[in-house]
Amino acid sequence: MSLENTKAQMRKGILEFCILSILKNKEAYPSEIIETLKSAKLIVVEGTLYPLLTRLKNEELLTYRWEESNAGPPRKYYSLTKIGKAFLEELDATWDELQMAVNKIVKN
């Protein structure tokens, strides 16, 4: 198992959680989500996002609505569904536990 692969696996696991978190308080269209994820260095290529969003939507964690854009094509604005919100709360709790656990192990 190469280092790159391991990094990618780690990122991928938390990517879903991050996307849901971004959408926690506001709706956003893919470009916005991409910007946030890029600045946090969570994704390298944008293409990664689209299958993920589609999957989350099909799992009914996300929903979207179309909106016309002043420049360019119309945008899909994604937001959390009820299921998505509950799902995110669960993940939040899990993440806190995980973070503490990991920090404990790594620092010791």
Binding site: P30, G47, P51, A71, G72, P73, P74
Partner: peptide
């Protein structure tokens, strides 16, 4: 092999269009 093929392709197309517009 993915049933999401159309939707993902369209999302990517949209993004290409958006980036091109810029």
């Amino acid at each position: 092999n993915s049933p999401d093929r159309k939707e993902i392709c369209e999302d990517v197309e949209l993004r290409i269009a958006e980036l091109a517009t810029a």
